[in-house]
C-alpha cells in the first residue's frame, strides 16, 4: 500500500492507502474523495479526475501519454503540474504523494 494525500480545493486533506498497480483515480474513488468524479472510470475519456501533482513527485510518476496530453490541453484550470489521476499508476516510489484537486472540480 502507498499513502497518498488528496487536498480538496478548500484545503481539506484526505490521506488514503492506495493499491500498487492501480491508479491514483481509483484510490480516490474507493475512498469517496470529493471532486474526483472519474465519470469514464479511467478510460481517459472525460477529464473529470484532473489533479495538480506536488512538484516533488513530478519526475517520479509515469510520463503522460498523447491522449492524456491532448485531454489536458483543453481541461479547465490547467497548470504545468496538471495530470489526469486515472493515468498515474501507483507504485512504492509514490509513497507520500500529494495531489490537489482543482477549483473547477470543487
Amino acid at each position: 500500500m502507498t499513502e497518498i494525500t488528496f487536498i480538496e480545493h478548500n484545503g481539506k486533506e484526505h490521506k488514503v492507502d492506495a493499491a500498487g498497480g492501480g491508479s491514483v483515480m481509483e484510490a480516490a474513488v474507493k475512498n469517496n474523495i470529493p471532486g474526483i468524479d472519474a465519470d469514464c472510470g479511467g478510460a481517459c475519456a472525460c477529464a473529470t479526475c484532473h489533479v495538480y501533482v506536488d512538484e516533488k513527485w513530478l519526475d517520479k510518476i509515469n510520463p503522460m501519454g498523447s491522449m492524456e496530453e491532448s485531454m489536458l490541453d483543453f481541461a479547465e484550470n490547467v497548470q504545468p503540474n496538471s495530470r489526469l489521476s486515472c493515468q498515474i499508476v501507483v507504485n512504492e516510489d509514490l509513497e507520500g504523494l500529494v495531489v490537489t484537486i482543482p477549483e473547477s472540480q470543487g
Binding site: 493499491a19 492501480g22 481509483e26 474513488v29 474507493k30 475512498n31 469517496n32 469514464c40 472510470g41 478510460a43
Partner: peptide, 30 residues
C-alpha cells in the same frame, strides 16, 4: 462499472477488483 464489460474487461486489460468502485470494506468504512 459496466462500461468495461464490453471493453477493457473483456479484453483482459482490467480485473474484477478494479471494476468495483469500492470494496465492501471500503463501503463499510463510509
Amino acid at each position: 462499472q459496466r462500461p468495461p464489460l464490453s471493453k477493457a474487461y473483456m479484453l483482459g486489460d482490467t480485473n474484477v477488483e478494479r471494476l468495483q468502485f469500492r470494496s465492501l470494506e471500503q463501503w463499510q468504512g463510509d
